[in-house]
Design a protein around this nucleic acid. Structure first.
Lengths: 151, 151
DNA sequence: ATACTTGCAAATGATTTGCCAGTGT
DNA sequence: ACACTGGCAAATCATTTGCAAGTAT
């Protein structure tokens, strides 16, 4: 399978889109693979590998789920982010890259348009020299709701 | 042992400072505990539990190192941050809380004055409603040096 | 003497890997 | 047919927990 440059805007609409990409890369759309992709389409928010396994009724082995997520990520179809201490969560690449915010209290994962963080990125560059990336290791903190009820 | 409110400015100068805090909280400054504290004083940058074990020549069990780091963190003497996929790194609380930046390429962990990120925090609040915290889950990205050589 | 601590072994949780049988194309 | 994949068991990595023996105070 070939790899896609990270950041490539890639949009998948349905399982067939994914099937095309997989085959084009020399891969096969097996039952397990299709099931994982369907689970991802069914989920509104990013989900963990374990949640995918559960959603599939345990019919697909965790190892296969991980391997498929890995391959799909190489194809640019899937992206994952790290949420606090917990398991990584995976989601379909719907269009351009997204940045994320994670609530350390309630665990919520919120997407945000990278453009909205441009000023933030600029300021961080200025004060630290670092070029920040919030797509893989997101911004952690307290969401609006949790920020209210105590710290 | 009693706990300290998170964020309390606490400054430890030497092992004796820590010993006082530990005893004051009903704890004991055992050989293993003292060794872990000394290893932390000896390290310039935050270190992983495994690095502490190694630095101590394997004379202290990993479980004890973890337990000590946990207790010392409860006392406000130690803080830890999560670096990429790797193990957490621990450091002594030298004065006020610090924020961190991690380079995803070279692994470097840089401290930064929280005040320097005030504008950043403000902007994030504005665009997302989140109250960010970079002390536990730091900002990830590319440090100045790594940002130069390709992406 | 008391109860906080330690080392050691075993358990966890998340993810990876080896291997061989199974199956898309 | 061919080699990409799947399931299953076992291995890894970081960290935690159970427990009986050890030791600061």
């Amino acid at each position: 399978m070939t790899v896609v440059r990270r950041g490539d805007p890639l949009d998948v609409r349905d399982v067939e889109d994914v099937a095309d990409l997989v085959r084009k890369a020399g891969g096969r759309l097996t039952g397990a693979r299709r099931a994982v992709v369907e689970a991802l389409f069914a989920a509104k928010d990013p989900v963990s590998a374990e949640e995918i396994v559960d959603a599939l009724g345990g019919n697909v082995d965790p190892a296969s789920v991980y391997r498929n997520l890995e391959r799909l990520e190489e194809l640019g179809v899937v992206r994952h982010v790290h949420v606090g201490h917990g398991a990584g969560v995976y989601g379909l690449a719907r269009g351009r890259e997204r940045d994320y915010l994670v609530c350390e209290r309630c665990g919520r994962v919120s997407e945000i348009e990278p453009t909205k963080l441009e000023q933030v990125r600029e300021d961080i560059r200025k004060v630290s020299g670092y070029e920040p990336r919030f797509s893989h290791f997101p911004i952690h903190g307290l969401c609006r709701r949790c920020a209210r009820g105590g710290t």
